[in-house]
């Protein structure tokens, strides 16, 4: 599995949000960090084909994907946990999970097994499987969103600020589970919470104003004075 962004630029209308960003996600887990408005979510939307590129190319497993439609990219093995409004509130927990697998052939064939796997990561989802997704707490909804993304049997799981709006203990629990998951699949996440995510990712990029300003392995970033001052409050 390899996701490669080569010198991409994109934005909305006349506004350019990402300006010549290059980034590589191989096996293992990679983080993208930066303040609000840096372009983290835009970068994920670009990977998924929801925002057209003005410049540059995106490759997944050696194949160019930036000209493809979102559903095709998802079927090729990239699943996303979007930042907000990520569920189908009028469907039950189980139905939300089923939708995750329903439209992808290899995932549909393996649905029963994947469901067991998701339930083993998040036992609460099994308890609540008949409940409407819209009636669950924020943390449970986020877990369901992760579960639904896993149902697609992706090679790469992308999470857009998984800690957003959750209480610290739940965030901690979620990252514990991501730490187990990353042994099975590759993870690419964006975060503002470096303290938690540096436990999980092997490598990180720092994005500011649409530019990658720093990259390095997790230890390197954790000990970089620039990073500790700006993000860890030390």
């Amino acid at each position: 599995m390899k996701l490669e962004l080569r010198n991409i630029s994109c934005g909305y209308g006349k506004l350019t949000v990402l300006n010549g960003v290059s980034l590589t996600v191989d096996e293992g887990s990679v983080g993208l960090f930066g303040p609000n408005g840096a372009g983290k979510t835009t970068l994920i939307h670009a990977v998924l084909g929801m925002v057209p590129l003005q410049n540059g190319e995106i490759y997944f497993d050696g194949e160019r994907i930036d000209t493809k439609k979102t559903h095709t990219i998802v079927r090729q093995g990239i699943s996303v946990v979007p930042q907000e409004r990520e569920l189908f509130p009028a469907m039950t927990v189980l139905e939300n999970l089923q939708v995750g697998a329903e439209n992808i052939d290899r995932a549909r064939a393996a649905m029963a097994d994947t469901l067991e796997l998701v339930y083993s990561y998040f036992p609460i989802l099994k308890e609540r499987q008949g409940q409407y997704a819209g009636t669950m707490s924020g943390g449970q909804q986020r877990m369901l969103a992760v579960g639904r993304a896993l149902m697609a049997k992706p090679k790469l799981l992308i999470l857009d600020e998984p800690s957003l709006g959750l209480q610290p203990s739940i965030v901690h629990e979620l990252f514990d589970i991501l730490n187990i998951m990353k042994k099975e699949i590759s993870i690419f996440l964006t975060e503002q919470n470096l303290r938690e995510s540096l436990r999980t990712v092997g490598k990180g990029y720092i994005l500011e104003n649409g530019h990658i300003v720093l990259e390095g392995d997790a230890d390197g970033l954790a000990n970089n004075p620039q990073v500790t001052r700006a993000y860890l409050g030390l």
Binding site: H71, V74, F88, Q98
Partner: peptide, 20 residues
């Protein structure tokens, strides 16, 4: 499932591989 998810949330529907 496909039509219900399109009605609920198109972005999420796209992200689960539905050709809207």
């Amino acid at each position: 499932f496909a039509v219900t998810s399109i009605r609920d949330n198109e972005i999420a529907a796209m992200s689960t591989g539905i050709n809207i």
